[in-house]
């Protein structure tokens, strides 16, 4: 073999390995989907969605879990979306370059990297105890809202940054004020990206388990919440609870719950991707 042959051989073996590396994650995803389908699909029924948790696996359902998830998501979104967009706007449009803006930037980048369970500890001390919210939906939502805030802020900033300067100039040149320019031109032009970020952030929040366990979400809730001050459970916690039980029948329930959770995640992420592609295609300045 001469040098060139060795080169080609190396190149080809790398390609084989690369295809393997690229696809192994997808293979795992495939196995995962098949596995939960086989384990849990037969358990998906009306009864599963409408039943309360129970000590008998075949009677148990995810009613309180998905209702709790809806409550938590709604409240989290109400808190995180305005605050996140507001902070993104402030950083991109208002704050002047200087130590304060670099400090904010490091700060947000750090928050994005803080393990989610630490947010749980924060929520436990601040929301549950200090602010007397108790182990309520409100406390859980504030905790998750802080957790996803960096995602909303970063995506808001990115999309606002992508809005060309000329658009702002056009608006200012017509006598619009700063806020009018931001509210009527910049934000609408950035809406696609901001929306994408919000969906991704919420999809992250939907799957979060650990911080909610820490702030005291219950594993057994025999009723659905009536207000944000009620205690709650969510889908991933219900799944965790079932997975942790020794009896195999509960694993079936866990698999069925996982099917629901994964479906929600894929739908949310899929729509975020579609939205992003669509938005990138439409925006040609």
């Amino acid at each position: 073999m001469n040098n060139e042959d060795i080169k080609t051989l190396k190149n080809n073996s790398f390609k084989v390995w690369a295809v393997f590396a690229t696809s192994i994650g997808l293979v795992m995803l495939g196995i995962l989907l098949v596995k939960i389908g086989m384990d849990g699909m037969h358990r998906i029924s009306m009864q599963f969605f409408t039943s309360l948790p129970s000590r008998r696996a075949e009677e148990a359902g995810i009613f309180t879990a998905w209702v709790g998830t809806l409550w938590i998501m709604g409240t989290t979104a109400l808190i995180a979306i305005p605050v996140g967009i507001g902070a993104g706007i402030y950083l991109e449009e208002y704050s002047k370059k200087g130590w304060w803006s670099s400090f904010l930037e490091i700060n947000i980048s750090n928050l994005a990297g803080v393990p989610s369970i630490i947010y749980g500890l924060l929520g436990l001390e601040v929301f549950v105890r200090l602010l007397h919210m108790g182990e309520s939906i409100l406390a859980g939502s504030f905790t998750l809202a802080l957790l996803i805030l960096p995602i909303v802020i970063v995506s808001t900033r990115e999309s606002i940054k992508a809005v060309p300067k000329t658009l702002r100039e056009a608006s200012y040149a017509l006598g619009a004020s700063k806020w009018q320019t931001v509210w009527m031109q910049v934000l609408p032009a950035a809406a696609g990206g901001v929306m994408t970020g919000i969906i991704l952030a919420l999809s992250r929040a939907i799957g979060e388990t650990a911080p909610l366990i820490v702030v005291g979400a219950l594993t057994y809730v025999p009723f659905t919440p009536k207000s944000v001050f009620d205690s709650f459970t969510v889908l991933p916690i219900q799944i965790f609870n079932w997975v942790s039980r020794p009896q195999a029948e509960f694993l079936v329930n866990a698999a069925a719950g996982i099917i629901v959770l994964v479906a929600i995640t894929i739908v949310m992420n899929g729509s975020a991707v579609l939205l992003r592609n669509r938005w990138q295609k439409n925006v040609k300045w």
Binding site: L167, A170, S171, A173, L174, G175, V283, W285
Partner: peptide, 29 residues
């Protein structure tokens, strides 16, 4: 001041909105 001194830029920079809304924007603000 800027309401009284209009400006047209080098590269056309209409707002990504309808023709109507482009012209109406100055009034709305």
């Amino acid at each position: 001041l800027r309401k009284n001194v209009g400006m047209v830029f080098q590269k056309p920079n209409p707002f990504p909105k309808s023709i109507y809304e482009n012209v109406a924007y100055g009034l709305r603000v």
